[in-house]
Design a protein around this nucleic acid. Sequence first.
DNA 1: TCGACACATCAAGTCGGCTTGATGTCGGAG
DNA 2: CTCCGACATCAAGCCGACTTGATGTGTCGA
Lengths: 152, 152
Amino acid sequence: MPQLEPGVIWLKPGQIAERAGVAVSTLHYYESVGLIRSRRTSGNRREYTRDTLRLIAFIRAAQRVGVSLEKIREALDQLPRERVPTKRDWARLARQWHDDLTTRIEELTALRDRFSDCIGCGCLSLRSCPYSNPEDVLGREGTGARRLPRRP
Amino acid sequence: MPQLEPGVIWLKPGQIAERAGVAVSTLHYYESVGLIRSRRTSGNRREYTRDTLRLIAFIRAAQRVGVSLEKIREALDQLPRERVPTKRDWARLARQWHDDLTTRIEELTALRDRFSDCIGCGCLSLRSCPYSNPEDVLGREGTGARRLPRRP
DNA sequence: TCGACACATCAAGTCGGCTTGATGTCGGAG
DNA sequence: CTCCGACATCAAGCCGACTTGATGTGTCGA
């Protein structure tokens, strides 16, 4: 029996996983950390809206750029949670995203150029070298365990 | 008693850690995975050459860009292991690095622009969308556990 | 109606990248 | 000579991001 609401198509876990290129277990995990949502059928099966595909693409892309799921979740909190995001909602997020990516790209570019300079100039003072401790605009927190407080 | 070899200055773990902005335990870890090296004093204390500072800066920068320590180690294997790398050695690595970073920057730029396009055009076909599965030139392996074989 | 298969729900395992803790040694200022 | 702090050497722990396994339930085509 097809869905009752007109205009909203619901997809099953397998379909989402297949089309988004992730494992079903990943969907569970993303849901458990509040990145995506689902409703349940009468038989307790998950159902996703189509825009979940877009959401997952967003998440994966952000990860590729080195953003943690935590940070991604924060970004996604800008999207409305109670309704399916409209194109306008996505556009707003995309613009923010665009800006962050631009910033990061600029950082990488600076990093690249400074690195060559550093090697060339023989500078060894990492503390004062802009290369060794650039600003962290996108807010990457570093991987792995907790950070040591640096000279507290 | 200062060092016997003229021209080579040896630094203690604390000095390296302080100047490079990492914990001493990180130095141990990096050494254990073959990223950096040390010699020992008669009293079994580690001693590092100055270029270790540069090495660590390289490592941290690479990590910021999302490169795994494994990949970094592979890159560093281009440096001579038996002698202190010269400026020429570093320059070669820097050039390689420069190229990789450039590639990655271009990827990010493409990603950013395509993402805006994707949102704008309403495309939902992630499988065919170039945004959803871009090439991975720098070879980031993804974080966390092993990857699922995608439709094997 | 039956059987295969997709799905649900945990708990536990894994891998990378470190940190923490316990325990013992070295070395230089006082 | 003594003592504190920096160092060495493990093993174990931890966080993020998932995956794997075990076990039970829904669904749908033949």
